[in-house]
Simulated scan of single mutants.
Amino acid sequence: MKAPTPRSLIVSFFGAYGRELGGWIAVADLVTLLGRLGVDAPAVRSAVSRQKQRGFLQARQADGVAGYSLSPEAEEILADGDRRIYLRQDVQLSDGWVLAVFSVPETERHRRHLLRSRLSRLGFGTTAPGVWIAPSHLAEEARHTLERLELAAYVDLFHADYLAYADLRDSAARWWDLGAVQAGYAEFSAQFLATDTDTDSADDADAFATYLRALDAWRRMPYRDPGLPPELLPQDWQGTQAADIFFGLHDRLRGRGLSYVKSVVSR
């Protein structure tokens, strides 16, 4: 897998630990923490600046100390991410589907691009121009995202059942690039399987670094994977093993990582 970028690690850090610190951290402490992952101070400061420009972070001083806190929009994004990243769905074919049907005027082409991009990132597949589909468990997340981005006026959402005529497993293989999802899971497993069996002897600082790397690699996977019912997945589906590895690391390392984070910020 690609090496994590400082900007991505900052998002992962705030998602995993930042909110438990009240949503604010001193720049110097963030430099120390990400230094455990081999990110140097200039790279951290540059990435923080970019996240401020994007509206993810806000500069704020606390007791005269320079630091950054999450923006209200970032709080919403992370809350949405929690439900997606840390929840293992038990999906049944009988749960049905959610359809997103949209029409955007040619004069607002930028909104059409944004809409397609966000539906794809949510896990929707394309059945026809302007018609996107996802398992029904993504309906509320789609509704919330479209409203937050002020795109709801262009979209109609439907709950649907598949009646006929194609083989649904073949159709799902057309609507989503399951091969790419499968490859991503296999790559994650290859990178972290050995880590999964060799973490008990790590100190809290190493536990923090290992968990943040794993989270940063994992958190995109549930968005690439629409969460299809088992009947529609390839027989050698790699997602189950990858999820077992991530949640095993989460259970064992996240708490120890938090202990290390608190030891740094309390100095």
Rank of each mutant, 00 (worst) to 15 (best):
Pro105Met: 00
Arg50Ser: 05
Leu57Gln: 00
Gln89Phe: 03
Val104Met: 02
Arg88Gln: 11
Glu75Ile: 12
Gln53Trp: 05
Val98Ser: 03
Arg60Gly: 01
Leu114Gln: 15
Asp90Pro: 13
His110Ile: 08
Leu87Thr: 15
His110Asp: 14
Gln61Asn: 07
Leu99Arg: 01
Leu70Glu: 01
Ala59Gln: 12
Leu114Pro: 10
Leu87Val: 15
Arg109Trp: 14
Thr107Asp: 14
Arg50Phe: 06
Tyr68Asn: 03
Ala66Asp: 06
Arg83Met: 01
Val101His: 01
Val104Leu: 03
Arg88Lys: 12
Leu57Asp: 05
Asp90Ile: 09
Ile85Phe: 11
Lys52Asn: 06
Glu73Leu: 01
Gln92Cys: 02
Gln58Asp: 08
Ala100Trp: 08
Arg109Glu: 14
Arg83Ala: 05
Val91Arg: 07
Gln61Asp: 15
Ser71Glu: 09
Ala74Trp: 06
Gln92Glu: 15
Pro72Leu: 02
Gln61Ser: 14
Gln58Gly: 01
Gln51Cys: 12
Asp80His: 06
Tyr86Thr: 09
Tyr86Asp: 14
Leu57Glu: 06
Gly55Thr: 00
Lys52Met: 08
Ser49His: 11
Ala100Leu: 05
Pro72Phe: 06
Leu93Cys: 05
Gly55Ser: 04
Arg84Tyr: 08
Ile85Ala: 01
Glu73Met: 07
Phe56Tyr: 09
Ser71Trp: 08
Val101Cys: 13
Gln53Pro: 03
Leu93Thr: 02
Gly96Asn: 12
Leu70Lys: 02
Phe56Pro: 01
Leu70Gln: 00
Glu73Ser: 10
Pro72Thr: 00
Leu87Ile: 13
His113Val: 04
Phe102Cys: 01
Ala79Tyr: 10
Gln58Val: 13
Phe102Ala: 00
Gln92Ala: 03
Asp63Arg: 09
Leu70Cys: 00
Ile85Asp: 02
Ala66Asn: 11
Thr107Leu: 09
Phe102Gly: 02
Leu99Trp: 04
Gln89Ala: 14
Ser71Phe: 03
Ser71Gln: 05
Trp97Cys: 03
Glu106Asn: 07
Ser71Lys: 05
Thr107Trp: 12
Arg112Leu: 00
Leu87Ala: 04
Arg50Glu: 04
Ala62His: 11
Ile77Trp: 13
Gly55Ile: 00
Leu99Ala: 05
Gly81Ser: 09
Arg50Ala: 02
Pro105Arg: 15
Val98Gly: 05
Leu70Pro: 00
Leu93Met: 10
Ser94Tyr: 05
Gly55Cys: 09
Gly67Met: 04
Val91Tyr: 01
Gln89Tyr: 15
Phe102Ile: 06
Tyr68Pro: 01
Asp63Trp: 04
Arg111Gly: 10
Arg50Pro: 02
Arg54Ser: 12
Leu57Trp: 10
Phe102Met: 09
Glu75Asp: 11
Ser71Asp: 07
Leu114Glu: 15
His113Ser: 14
Gly64Asp: 09
Gly81Ile: 03
Asp80Leu: 13
Ala79Ile: 10
Ser71Thr: 14
Ala100His: 03
Gln89Leu: 01
Ser71His: 05
Ala59Met: 06
Leu114Thr: 15
Glu106His: 14
Ile77Ser: 12
Asp63Ser: 08
Arg54His: 07
Arg60His: 08
Leu57Lys: 01
Ser71Leu: 02
Phe56Ile: 07
His110Tyr: 15
Val91Pro: 03
Ala79Glu: 11
Lys52Trp: 03
Asp63Met: 00
Pro72His: 07
Glu75Gln: 06
Gly67Cys: 00
Ser71Ala: 02
Tyr68Lys: 04
Gln58Tyr: 08
Gly64Thr: 04
Ile77Phe: 01
Glu76Leu: 10
